[in-house]
Design a binder for these strands. Sequence first.
DNA 1: TCGTTCTATGCAACTCGTTGCATATCAAGA
DNA 2: TCTTGATATGCAACGAGTTGCATAGAACGA
Lengths: 188, 188
Amino acid sequence: MALDHAILVSLLEQPGSGYELARRFERSIGYFWTATHQQIYRVLKRMESDGLLDVRDIPQQGRPDKKEYSVAGPGRDALAAWLHEPIEPESLRHDLAVKIRGAAFDDPAALIREVERHHRVHSERLEHYLTGERRDFTGPGAPAPLDAGQELQHVVLRGGIAYERMTVAWLDDVLATLHRIGPAAPRT
Amino acid sequence: MALDHAILVSLLEQPGSGYELARRFERSIGYFWTATHQQIYRVLKRMESDGLLDVRDIPQQGRPDKKEYSVAGPGRDALAAWLHEPIEPESLRHDLAVKIRGAAFDDPAALIREVERHHRVHSERLEHYLTGERRDFTGPGAPAPLDAGQELQHVVLRGGIAYERMTVAWLDDVLATLHRIGPAAPRT
DNA sequence: TCGTTCTATGCAACTCGTTGCATATCAAGA
DNA sequence: TCTTGATATGCAACGAGTTGCATAGAACGA
């Protein structure tokens, strides 16, 4: 249930509506957690009825009303309790690796385009993260010195950057391997 | 549904029972996919009734009978079809990163032990993978030259190694950051 | 001898996550 | 004018994944 906690953290950093949260999950929170808007709305409703969140209805002109959520006392306590519990070190779930091993029973060369596509996506994410880092942490307009919260946000972002960099390098390795074994016949 | 495909690949590499598959998922396949035995048994049953797998009952002495599964023709076709479809580049889901950002609203120093624990687990996984690499690919007893299937298994393992190495280095960074901001008061 | 671990399979209940669909208004462009 | 896209929220159904429990004999160590 880390989605609950990710939402609590995000709302502590800045209160907002379900729609706004969904957009944050496409951006900064997306470094380490993903969620669709349907999921978010459902969880927000549940957490509000459990008293973890407060809601404020904000009427808007020409747009549907917006419900701004913020963290209530019990929500803060729930987050603190979770922070003090140990969690399992998580493991990878990497479909592409399944495909790569599966390619031994098909045509390995046919995978090259797919791997190149993934390479592009991860390179773009890396660029995107680096741009965000310059804007918020290392560029000329960034605050200095950073406070504790910003330091923590920065180290999480560095994790996202390290992940994308590692992935891009590995995909280079995969491509080189596919080219090397290129003309090989599939295993029967 | 990549679990289905991971099972197909594993059974093509080597037919086996649900129990054996579960153990493989704790080892080599665990580099890129995890699954519990309950999940595996359920999926095996479904794939068998869909005609993707064949079963052979193997009676054993002093032990419950074993059901050895192998991939049938339609299973092979299903895998080939999936290999030719594009898949979404996946994103991270990292609870620990949620905790790190959440620590800004609690006591950052309290996270140090937790991060150290994760550091240990990932270091052990890295050692484990490196041992496997020496045994199967780079050590003196390893086959040389490798065939296409072994090359692909090796590049996937290199991915697991790169991931663990990157993670350990990032956790070092996280620890340094936590120590640096150590005495800071939590945000209110 | 007694508990634990390993082999081997499975059900039931539950939560989590995804997909498809639906509504409603405004702004911008073709 | 008509369509697309952004804002803003939501239901229903399904599929994936987790947790707890149950069975049962063999091997092994305390």
